[in-house]
């Protein structure tokens, strides 16, 4: 797989570290346990378009949101993960 880092350009996936699903919002400190449970454990597992957190660990070290198709590995976009 090759990932188009928005800062460094397209690189091989061995430069990147994978974390997991992107787009989660950390609950407020006083949120209900259910919200924390969802945040920490519950994940979609889509066959298709999926947004994930990858770090360009051997490059610019930025965390990125990479959207790809889990069936074909086609990458739709890769953007900086800073909200």
């Amino acid at each position: 797989m090759r990932i188009p880092c928005p800062h460094c350009g397209e690189r091989g996936n061995d430069e990147f570290f994978y974390l997991g699903a992107a787009g989660l919002t950390r609950p407020a400190a006083d949120a209900q346990p259910e919200a924390w449970h969802d945040y920490v454990y519950l994940r979609d597992n889509p066959a298709g378009k999926h947004s994930e957190l990858w770090q360009h660990a051997h490059g610019c070290r930025r965390w990125l949101v990479v959207t790809r198709d889990t069936r074909t590995h086609a990458v739709f976009s890769a953007v900086d993960a800073t909200p």
């Binding site: 570290f17 974390l19 950390r26 957190l53 770090q55 660990a57 070290r61 930025r62 965390w63 993960a81 800073t82 909200p83």
Partner: peptide
């Protein structure tokens, strides 16, 4: 270090 980079960049930018 990765964890700290995540916490800073994504949670407390």
């Amino acid at each position: 270090l990765q964890h700290m980079e995540f916490v800073h960049q994504v949670l407390r930018p």
